[in-house]
């Protein structure tokens, strides 16, 4: 069989499509982690505040706080990190407020995601973009 220019192009395009396909799997790791937390429920908006700096000079310690009055659990995810899970807070009967602060590592500039489970079983999420100057995951 002789290879025409058209065939060669089609082959090249096919190869390109295959090589591009696995990329979205990275972003899905976060979606999977969130789905595991929410049990597949869709998260709404509002009622959850995620506070993070706009620019983090050092990705090794980025102060982050979450606040969701009436929540029972709050989880934080960093989709740009090698593993998206960051921390999960479960509030007990003696929690003074449904808020907490923690310092985390971010490997690069990304949109932090927080998901809160409310007392009525619904979920809300909030996002915050953090620009990271020096990544904090070693390497």
């Amino acid at each position: 069989m002789t290879m025409t220019r058209r065939d060669a192009l089609a082959l090249a395009m096919g190869g390109f499509a295959v090589s591009v396909l696995p990329l979205p799997a990275l972003a899905d790791a976060t979606a999977d982690a969130i789905a595991k937390f929410t049990g597949g429920a869709t998260a709404g908006e509002g009622g959850l505040t995620l506070t993070a700096p706009e620019i983090a000079e050092n990705g090794n310690t980025v102060p982050v706080s979450v606040d969701a009055p009436g929540a029972t659990e709050i989880a934080i995810y960093a989709p740009g990190n090698p593993t998206p899970d960051v921390a999960t807070f479960k509030f007990g009967p003696l929690a003074g407020s449904q808020a907490a602060s923690i310092r985390i590592r971010l490997s690069k500039t990304q949109d932090l995601v927080a998901v809160a489970k409310m007392a009525d079983g619904s979920f809300v999420q909030a996002k915050s973009t953090v620009k990271v100057t020096i990544g904090g995951c070693g390497g």
């Binding site: 310690t61 593993t83 960051v86 921390a87 479960k90 929690a95 907490a100 985390i104 590592r105």
Partner: peptide, 10 residues
Amino acid sequence: IDVTLDPAVS
């Protein structure tokens, strides 16, 4: 409070 920590914590 009960906190689960992952490697992304400083």
